[in-house]
Each structure stands twice: as structure tokens, then as C-alpha cells.
Amino acid sequence: MNAQFKKGVLELVVMVVVDEADIYGYELVKTVCEIIQVNEGTIYPLLKRMTLEKYFETYLRESTEGPPRKYYRITSLGKEEMIKLKKEWLDFSKSINTFLEKGENHE
């Protein structure tokens, strides 16, 4: 898939995943990579940025195996942003789809 497409929706996907349930880094990367094929390296910086922008907050939780894990939780600000992005994406994809279908009908 086009790398530019991926970049555009990656933030939204990450937000939706975190919104579903609090999640720690590795699991989140795995989940996201199942949805969009992206380089794992790009997700951590994105998480970092969104945390710094106060869309996410982090907390540590003990795990049964190994050291405590860093969990990500969406903030109310992040939720707002997610809803906005979601709406934008839906509108955008809808209009693009309509346009493409129209093009197909013409052919």
C-alpha cells in the first residue's frame, strides 16, 4: 500500500486502538501492524509525539513476566481529536469513493 496513505491514517488507527482499551507499547504495535503494514519503528515516535501533545497519557503496570509495562490511555483531548479525525477520514474516503465509483461507471 502507498506509504503516503499509511502515514495519513496511522495516527487515527493508533488512537482508535488505544481508545478501545488501555494498551502497552508492544501489543499496540502488533495490533496496528495487523491493520496497516507499517514499519514498527515509526509507531513509537508517533506514540511519543501524541503523548507529548497530551492526546495520550501513560502509566506503569506490573506484569507477570519481566519489568513493569508502560500503558497508554487516551485523554479527553485525544478523544476529541480522534472523533474529529474519524469524521474527517469518513467524509474524505466517502467523497473519494463516490468519485472513483462514478469514474468506473463512466468506463
Partner: peptide, 30 residues
């Protein structure tokens, strides 16, 4: 932690590291 997780799932150390892609790019985006 990420690399360890990957290794526990059966990937080699090298593979797990390589999955992060180019180091320079990674540090830049961080």
C-alpha cells in the same frame, strides 16, 4: 522490551532489530 517480546515470539535478535528499519530515520522521527 519490544525487541525482547519479538524474540520471545521466536524471531532472531537481528530480525527484531531490523524490523525497526533505519536507525537514523527512527531517531530523527523520535
Amino acid at each position: 522490551e519490544h525487541i525482547e517480546h519479538k524474540m520471545s515470539e521466536g524471531k532472531s535478535e537481528e530480525e527484531a532489530v531490523n524490523d525497526f528499519g533505519d536507525l537514523g530515520e527512527l531517531s530523527r522521527s523520535i
